Simulated assay, not measured.
Amino acid sequence: MDFKKFLPWIIAVVVLIGIYGWVKGINNTAVTLNQNVEQSWGDVQTAYQRRNDLIGNLVNTVKGAADFEKSTLTAVIEARSKATSVKIDPANITPEQLAEFNKAQSGVSSSLSRLLVTVEQYPDLKANQNFLKLQDELASTENQILTARTRFNEAVKPYNSHIKTFPNSLFAGMFGFKEKAYFNSVEGADKPVEVKF
């Protein structure tokens, strides 16, 4: 049997198997990194959901103060409602969607800050153990949100790097992988917060 006759075919098959393995590796790594991003996004949403749940309890506790400012409570409830209505598909997070989500969540943070500043005028409410516990849980949740957002950005970086580097970028688009947006601070977050009593 003359092996020279089959040598080009053997080389072609080995090259094809090598290319298949290489392209498969690009795709499978992108899938794994994408799953990490989606899991991190789920953690972000869970942290925000915890805050929204706590806000409901906080508002109900504050409502007990007979002469408490209704407009402040209404602002918190409306901001919470608006924030929960913004939905994002983790498989296709665009900078515009993330900016809208961020804007809605900053509205919650802003109205919640006003509520907590206003509470300072009510000594009975400040002494209420349920309120104090909710306030502590809320502070803890804000830290969880910060951690979740940071981990989300940490998951996005290797994914974006993988699909944007050459030659992976040639195949990423064919497989449907798109660049994901990072969490950025909301507009005006670089300026100090002015607190008025």
Rank of each mutant, 00 (worst) to 15 (best):
G25V: 04
S185D: 14
F131N: 10
T46G: 11
I55C: 08
M174R: 10
W9Q: 12
N57E: 12
I55F: 11
T29P: 09
E96T: 13
P8Y: 05
S161W: 03
N60Y: 03
V117C: 06
F183C: 05
E78S: 15
S161E: 13
L7V: 03
M174L: 15
T84L: 02
A47E: 10
Q129F: 02
S71V: 13
D136M: 05
I88A: 06
N184V: 15
M174P: 00
N28Q: 12
R114M: 08
T147R: 01
I77Q: 10
Q105K: 04
L116T: 08
L170N: 05
A65K: 03
L58G: 06
G21A: 15
K191H: 10
E78Q: 14
F175L: 06
G188Y: 06
V76Q: 02
P90W: 00
M174F: 11
N60W: 11
N36F: 01
V62Q: 02
R114S: 13
V86D: 03
S40V: 04
Q49P: 04
E142H: 05
E120Q: 15
T72I: 14
Q45R: 09
A65F: 14
F183D: 02
K164D: 15
N27D: 14
A91R: 08
I88P: 01
R50H: 14
I145D: 04
A127Y: 09
Y122L: 10
F183Q: 00
Q129C: 10
I77N: 07
Y182F: 12
N130K: 03
V193Q: 14
L54S: 07
K126M: 11
L98G: 05
V186S: 13
P158G: 07
L125C: 05
D43V: 00
L146P: 02
Y20G: 15
